[in-house]
Amino acid sequence: MKNSKENILTNSYVIMLLALIACFLWGSAFPSIKIGYKLFEINKTNTYGKILFAGYRFLLSSMLILIFCTISKLSIKIKKEAFFKLILLGVIQTFLQYIFFYIGLSNTSGVKGAIISSSNTFFSVLLPHFFYREDKITYKRLIGVILGFIGVVIVNLKAGSFDGGFKFTGEGFIILSSLAGAFAGIYTKKLAKDISPFAVSGYQLFTGSIALILVGTLGASQNITFTTKGSILLLYMAFISAAAFSIWAVLLKYNGVGKVSIYKFSIPIIGSFLSFFLLNESFKSSNVIFAIILVSLGIYLINKK
């Protein structure tokens, strides 16, 4: 017999609402990161500066989760053996995923990076087939994830998007980043069964951020510049990660990985809209509308009983 909390968090409409809130937050990170690079004076070639920037963001995120849990009187106590598991999750989800992503993105075009990184959702829907009974691949699930992936390609597609071939430290690293993110989602579900989702998010962000800061500090050729505006933006970006990762951990605790992860196809679409409004970046409205239709169909097929 499901308890009332589980009944609520397995309701399709609640899943959709919470997943889209998380995806909206992650989508807002696209223009926020670009603005952040300007405010912190991080140029395009300063890969280690970007890693350091990410490390500060995720460290602050973990602190926000700790403050929230303290105010809300939510326990984040864990057993010693669980702590080592959370360190592993932090290495996979926060450290490796973003190390591969930032280095990969610095060695390929932004458009190719955006399209290839969406393979995270593709892997997140298909890989759980081998780990969880409720996430078995069906023809509807396969068609749904293909439609979603095509939607992401369309919203990012521009003339010459795929020029330049394949480079392992570019496109290859972004694929590795996507794989790390997919496996992290599977592992998050496993850990969230016995550990508070807020503890899962807080500890993995903390351990992963420390590793990012160490690598960024050792490799950066110049320090990043802190300003009042930059610090306010960094605080918002920390909130993005704290809220989105926590919501995601709660959803994964009670639902199949594939059922939840399909919503991540909406992130680049949301990012495109917000980049248009905040950065005046152009996009083809017909492409975006078509992408929204395909992603919506994909979500419908995967969640249709």
Score class of each variant (00 low, 15 high):
S4C: 10
S4L: 14
S4V: 06
N7Y: 06
I8P: 00
S12R: 10
Y13V: 08
M16R: 06
M16F: 11
L18C: 12
A19N: 03
A22R: 03
S28W: 06
F30H: 08
S32L: 04
I33D: 05
I33Q: 14
Y37M: 08
I51Y: 08
L52D: 10
F53S: 02
A54F: 09
F58N: 11
L59I: 08
L59Q: 03
S61P: 12
M63N: 02
L64C: 04
I65S: 00
F68D: 00
T70I: 13
K73I: 02
L74T: 06
I76C: 14
K77M: 02
K79T: 05
K79M: 15
F83L: 15
F84L: 10
L86D: 10
I87V: 10
L89F: 11
L89R: 11
G90T: 04
F95A: 15
Y98D: 11
I103A: 04
N107L: 01
V111P: 03
S117A: 10
S118A: 13
N120V: 07
V125C: 15
L126P: 00
L127C: 09
E134L: 14
K136F: 03
K140M: 08
L142G: 07
I143V: 14
G144P: 11
G144L: 04
V145H: 12
V145K: 03
V145N: 07
I146Q: 10
G148S: 08
V152F: 03
V152H: 05
I154K: 04
I154W: 09
I154N: 01
I154F: 01
N156K: 14
K158W: 13
G160F: 12
S161Y: 01
F166K: 14
F166C: 12
F168Q: 09
I175E: 03
S177W: 07
S178T: 05
A182D: 15
F183E: 11
I186C: 13
T188Y: 11
K190Y: 14
L191H: 08
D194K: 10
D194P: 06
S201I: 01
L205A: 07
T207D: 07
A211K: 00
I213Y: 08
L214S: 09
G216Y: 07
A220F: 06
A220T: 14
S221W: 12
T227E: 10
T228E: 15
L233I: 04
L234D: 06
A238N: 03
A238T: 03
I240C: 01
F245E: 00
L252M: 13
K253M: 10
Y254N: 03
N255G: 02
G258W: 04
G258D: 06
V260S: 02
I262D: 13
K264A: 07
K264S: 11
K264Y: 14
F265N: 15
I267K: 02
S272N: 08
S272I: 12
L274A: 01
L278Y: 12
L279Y: 00
L279P: 05
F283L: 03
F283S: 03
S285C: 03
N287A: 08
V288L: 15
I289C: 04
F290Q: 10
A291N: 07
A291T: 05
A291S: 15
I292E: 10
I292Y: 13
I293N: 07
I293S: 12
L294T: 04
V295R: 02
V295A: 02
S296H: 02
Y300H: 07
L301W: 13
L301C: 11
I302K: 10
N303H: 09
K304P: 15
K305H: 13
K305V: 09
